[in-house]
Amino acid sequence: MHFFKISLKNSIVYRWSVLFSIIGSILYVAISLMLWRFLYRNDADMIAYMTKYTIVSNIISMFYARGISGRIGDKVATGAFATDLIRPVHLFTMAWQMELAGICANLLMRGLPVILVYLPFLIANAGYYNLFAVFLSVALGHMLFLLIYSLLGFSAFILIEIWPFRRLIDDTIRLLAGGFIPLAILPAFVGHIAHALPFRFLYSFPLELLFGKADMDKAFENFAVLIVWISVFGLLNALMYRQALKKAVVQGG
């Protein structure tokens, strides 16, 4: 809890940064909205759908904090990892709490203004479904995202510099998770790739649930697959951590 509090305070200490990040978030959504409104200018229903899709997807993105890879990766690269081994809190738990604080600060300082500014669009012809399932899918998506990026952090034992690989994952998510472009408009072969990877559970799946585009059987199947993906990445994290402990050599008196 203390890590959470400290990290939350750190997130809001630079007031100008907070203001600029609020403006940045509102601007980013505005640019995407203008693009979709132009592209679907002859289809009012699609404009309404893409408007809500863009705003909600932007809010969902705030639940996915990629900083954990840096937190773990930097400790591995600098050797600070060794001192964390003697602490009573697991490195992953510590990094996760800090990320959770960052997410709370983000939701307060960026999410809330985005919701307030775009509220008229969000409530116009509101047709939201499966809210409990949506929250559950975002919570599970958060776990999946966290495990993918913490695995990347631990892989600093092998890769040393992890930022290029973080960028590869970021960009793959940008195209294949359905955060910006709905998966339905991807060409078939790209759509197949997106469906074979776990990233679609981050944006596309919760958004499909929210807008009533997924039937219940399909939704249950998707939840099952998502839990399998979380288990796979959880297992890989545990394996990587154990291997790291076996190989790590700590010098000192």
Partner: peptide, 27 residues
């Protein structure tokens, strides 16, 4: 001296903007 880091960094940037072009292509 760190060839792997050098080329992986270059490749990451190549891939990032390749994805952007792919996004434009999709639209």
């Amino acid at each position: 001296e760190y060839r792997f880091s050098f080329f992986s960094g270059m490749f990451a940037n190549f891939y990032c903007y390749f994805i952007t072009y792919a996004t434009i292509w999709v639209i």
